[in-house]
């Protein structure tokens, strides 16, 4: 339990934390929160393990991170990109690129193609997950704004009627 779930999430959290240095994030609160997004994303990835498909796991983790970063961007008044870019890092298929290349060097074509396709589909899953989540969130905030406008219009109408 500790070794299978807690440790990977901790490593994901810490790697996202130090990656903030490469991306020049200076605000300490934002560094901490976006690194938490990295840990959370990996936690979602591990929770989705019963689906038994790496692509599905990455997709769910990407959706989680994207929703998290949209909410955090509201709270901390920073662009969602900041949280998103750092939170997604643990999912980026560095291992996939490496193993694809290794099979290529060994001349193992079958495994090379299999790994290569897996890597591409992981990257695709991340991209699709992120875009779906942010599209959903945009829709949500659009309706919220719309409701706000309606309420405001009602208030204005009410004021006008009473002032008559």
């Amino acid at each position: 339990m500790f070794k299978d779930i807690f440790l990977p999430c901790l490593w994901a959290f810490l790697s996202s934390l130090v990656f903030c240095g490469i991306f020049n994030v200076h605000d300490k609160k934002i560094i901490l929160v976006s690194a938490l997004g990295g840990g959370l994303g990996w936690f979602a990835y591990l929770l989705a393990a019963p689906s038994e498909s790496v692509v599905m796991q990455n997709f769910i983790a990407a959706v989680t991170v994207a929703l998290f970063s949209e909410f955090m961007s509201r709270i901390f008044k920073a662009p969602s990109t900041v949280f998103l870019v750092i939170g997604v890092l643990p999912m980026v298929p560095g291992g996939g690129i490496y193993y694809t290349m290794e099979y290529g060097v060994q001349g193992n074509t079958a495994m090379f193609i299999e790994k290569g396709l897996e890597t591409i589909s992981i990257a695709g899953a991340i991209a699709v997950g992120v875009s779906i989540a942010s599209a959903l969130f945009r829709l949500y905030s659009y309706f919220q704004a719309q409701q706000f406008k309606q309420r405001e219009n009602m208030v204005i109408r009410y004021d006008r009627n009473n002032n008559k």
């Binding site: 870019v85 298929p93 690129i97």
Partner: peptide, 19 residues
């Protein structure tokens, strides 16, 4: 090698493509 190349892998671009 995997650990070390993670800082070179284009994670930002991957997340932004579909968006």
């Amino acid at each position: 090698i995997i650990g070390a190349i993670m800082s070179l892998v284009p994670g930002v671009a991957i997340t932004n493509i579909m968006r």
